[in-house]
């Protein structure tokens, strides 16, 4: 009860104000979960934070794959939690978790992307390869997390949006659609001139998901 000790002055309660004790006495737990419209953050502070997260993940790491794995792991719990939060914010009628792959991917493309980045993902595609019916692609022309990042030439395989891939993977796992999600840079190829940072999030579902999907289709 530190704030009682210094109560000699009238302003002393103000002095306790800070992150833990806001001046109006309302902590983060008093805020409604539904505030979505005005919840914007500074992109600069996010950029610095993300830069530190990448540097942190880079420590004691042996290869690029391991680095991407770590970034993925940083994002995973966020996805798990966001699924719950975003569904809770849906109007009561549509407050069910997605039951088909297409519904899930649309939820990610629209709700998740809008919540995280303020806009929808640019495209959604199914792999045209008949040998890989379990692969779907979410395409973002310029991922916000990569806005200020230039990957050095010797690490050209790396895409720091692996963090976002981790979030997507968390959402898929949380919705009981276990999947592996990876981020790949495709800028510099075909239409890459226009979007040098273009990134494909490759969603590869586990076989049991497709099996279930086929059963739902029949019924």
């Amino acid at each position: 009860m530190a704030h009682i000790v210094g109560s000699g002055k009238a302003a002393s309660s103000k002095e306790q104000a800070g992150l833990r004790y806001p001046s109006n006495g309302k902590t983060i737990y008093h805020r409604p979960l539904n505030r979505t419209k005005t919840a914007e953050l500074s992109q600069a502070s996010f950029a610095y934070l993300f830069s530190e997260m990448v540097s942190y993940a880079q420590r004691r790491v042996t290869g690029i794959q391991e680095l991407e794995k770590r970034l993925n792991l940083q994002g995973h719990p966020i996805g798990l939690k966001l699924l719950d939060l975003l569904l809770m914010r849906e109007p009561p009628r549509s407050q069910t978790r997605p039951l088909t792959i297409i519904a899930l991917l649309h939820f990610i493309k629209i709700n998740l992307w809008t919540h995280l980045f303020g806009r929808q993902a640019d495209r959604l595609e199914k792999s045209s390869d008949p040998a890989a019916p379990d692969e779907y692609m979410i395409i973002d022309n310029e991922p916000l997390v990569n806005a200020y990042i230039s990957v050095p030439r010797e690490m050209s395989q790396l895409n720091c949006a692996a963090f976002v891939a981790g979030i997507v993977e968390g959402v898929c796992d949380g919705a009981m659609f276990p999947a592996r999600v990876t981020a790949h840079s495709v800028g510099g190829k075909e239409e890459g001139e226009m979007w040098p940072g273009k990134t494909v999030f490759l969603v590869k579902f586990q076989p049991e998901v497709l099996e279930r999907e086929a059963l739902i289709g029949k019924g």
Binding site: A47, S51, E52, Y148, I149, S150
Partner: peptide, 19 residues
Amino acid sequence: DYVMKNPFYQLEMPVRCDM
């Protein structure tokens, strides 16, 4: 923006950032 916020840039070292 493009140098200081880049996690791969080391302070005081030559700037090599494509962006």
